[in-house]
């Protein structure tokens, strides 16, 4: 091989870069999140079910929330009819957070794990009597 030194350095840089996730993780996968569902409001429920199915909420809640925001604030519609035909009042504070009052143990666990920064709290108050807007706590 000609120019062996240069080629080996180049290849080493390439292999180092494409395998960087392996080195950065040091062979340990971070523990997966376990969002807590045991708020007082949920424990009082007879049927422990969210507005849509568990599978749907897991994957698609952000789109539902976005749709709710558009309906409630831009069109003034506060009524959502779910796939079972139940009527639900559209409100983050009074519907979602009534049950899921534990943002830190619920929302933030998965959002931190997947490093997602939802901008809900740019406008909404963070529950639990927090006084500040858009707290950075639990966001990074």
């Amino acid at each position: 091989m000609y120019d062996t030194g240069k080629i080996i350095v180049g290849l080493a840089i390439f292999v180092g870069l494409v395998t960087s996730p392996i080195w950065l993780n040091k062979g340990k996968a971070a523990p997966k999140p376990s969002p807590k569902l045991d708020t007082p409001a949920i424990q009082q429920l007879e049927k422990k079910e969210c507005v849509e199915s568990r599978q749907f909420m897991r994957s698609t809640h952000m789109q539902l929330l976005n749709e709710w925001r558009d309906r409630a604030l831009r069109k003034g519609e506060r009524r959502y009819i779910n796939k079972k035909g139940e009527k639900i009042y559209i409100s983050l504070q009074n519907t979602c957070m009534k049950c899921h009052s534990n943002k830190k143990e619920f929302c933030d666990t998965c959002h931190n794990y997947t490093d997602i920064k939802p901008y809900c709290w740019d406008c909404h108050f963070i529950p639990e009597g927090r006084k500040t807007w858009a707290s950075t706590e639990g966001h990074s």
């Binding site: 392996i22 993780n25 340990k28 897991r58 998965c110 794990y113 997947t114």
Partner: peptide
């Protein structure tokens, strides 16, 4: 399910 995806991909990258 993004949490599931991250679990799988992170597992691949850490050989678990």
């Amino acid at each position: 399910d993004i949490v599931g995806v991250k679990e799988l991909v992170l597992g691949l990258a850490s050989f678990h």
